[in-house]
Amino acid sequence: MAVASDRVRSTTIEATEFPELSRAYQVMGVPKVVINDRVQFEGAVPEKDFLGAVLQAVTHPRPR
């Protein structure tokens, strides 16, 4: 997705080497995906659902 769009950046984080980041994002199981720090899910999902999460993260304004 990062290659397909200039707007997308993807960072893969090795959870055991970055315990503080993992704690901050409450990583309990892997893979855990966090999009724009607000939409998140655990486990592998079909491409369609992943796209749905991306669109959800950009279309709904961040709650205040």
Binding site: M1, A2, A4, S5, R7, V8, R9, S10, T11, T12, I13, E14, A15, T16, L21, S22, Y25, V27, V30, P31, K32, V33, V34, I35, N36, D37, E47, K48, L51, V54, L55, A57, V58
Partner: peptide, 22 residues
């Protein structure tokens, strides 16, 4: 998929994806 690619082309905001893995 073509569907995903076309949806990504219309993104109106930046997207930051973090994937935690082991």
């Amino acid at each position: 998929s073509e569907e995903t690619l076309s949806a990504l082309r219309t993104l109106a905001a930046d997207v930051d994806i973090k994937v935690f893995s082991t």
